[in-house]
C-alpha cells in the first residue's frame, strides 16, 4: 500500500495537535451555536433596547414584511418629527398588513381566546399621506385622516387602521409623529389572526418631543 503514511519521505509537521486549542475552539463554537439557536431574538431585542433609543429614525423607515415577521422589529421615533414608513411585502405567497396600537381585542375560540387586533389604534386622528401604493389588497383608514397621492387603493371598513399588501406590494405612509409617546406595538393579524401568533410583530418607541 503506497498511500500509507509509513511510505512518506520525511514528516514536515508534528501530528500531535494541541488539545487545549481544540477544546477551547470546540466549546466556544458549541456555546455560540446554542446561544444563537435559542436566544437569537432576545439578543436582538436587548441590543435594540440598549442602542435603539439613541438611533431615532427620521425620514424614511423601510419595513419589510415576510412570513412571519417584520424587519426591523424595533423602530424609534420622536414626537413632532416628520417620518415616512416605506412598507414592502417581501413574501412571495402571503398578504400582510400593518397595524399599530396597544392592548388587545380578544375573541373567544375553541382552543382559547385569540387576539384579533390592537385595542387602541395609534392612527386615531393622525393626518397621514399615502403614496406609491402598489399591489394593495385593501386599506382600512379607520379614524385616521388620510390624503391619497397617486393611485387610491381599494378602501374598506372594519377594524383598526391597516393597509394590507399583496405579495410583492408596497406603499409609503408619511405623517408627523403625533404626541403619543411611549411604547407601541405593530403587528399583522391577517389569516384568522394567525400571523400575530406566528410572531409577526414589533415594537415602536416614541420619545417625547425635544424641549
Amino acid at each position: 500500500m503506497s498511500d500509507t503514511p509509513a511510505s512518506r519521505p520525511t514528516p514536515r509537521r508534528n501530528p500531535e495537535w494541541s488539545k487545549t486549542l481544540f477544546a477551547v475552539v470546540f466549546i466556544l463554537v458549541v456555546i455560540a451555536a446554542i446561544v444563537a439557536l435559542f436566544w437569537q431574538r432576545q439578543i436582538g431585542d436587548a441590543w435594540s433596547r440598549m442602542f435603539g433609543t439613541e438611533r431615532v429614525q427620521t425620514g424614511t423607515t423601510h419595513i419589510e414584511q415576510y412570513d412571519y415577521g417584520f424587519h426591523p422589529r424595533h423602530i424609534t421615533w420622536r414626537v413632532g418629527d416628520k417620518v415616512t414608513i416605506s412598507l414592502h411585502n417581501a413574501s412571495a405567497t402571503h398578504w400582510h398588513e400593518m397595524m399599530i396600537g396597544r392592548g388587545f381585542d380578544d375573541t373567544p375560540y375553541v382552543v382559547g381566546p385569540v387576539h384579533t387586533q390592537f385595542d387602541q389604534d395609534f392612527w386615531d386622528g393622525v393626518h397621514v399621506t399615502m403614496s406609491h401604493a402598489f399591489k394593495v389588497d385593501n386599506f382600512v383608514p379607520n379614524k385616521a385622516i388620510v390624503t391619497f397621492v397617486g393611485q387610491k387603493p381599494f378602501t374598506t371598513e372594519g377594524g383598526n387602521f391597516s393597509p394590507t399588501l399583496e405579495p410583492g406590494g408596497s406603499l409609503d405612509l408619511t405623517f408627523t409623529v403625533p404626541n403619543k409617546p411611549g411604547t407601541w406595538q405593530y403587528g399583522c393579524f391577517v389569516q384568522q389572526f394567525m400571523h400575530y401568533v406566528a410572531g409577526m410583530h414589533g415594537t415602536i418607541t416614541i420619545l417625547p418631543a425635544k424641549t
Partner: peptide
C-alpha cells in the same frame, strides 16, 4: 399547514 395549524378547529 403552517403556524396556524393547531387553531384550525371548528365545533
Amino acid at each position: 399547514c403552517g403556524p396556524g395549524h393547531p387553531f384550525m378547529v371548528a365545533p
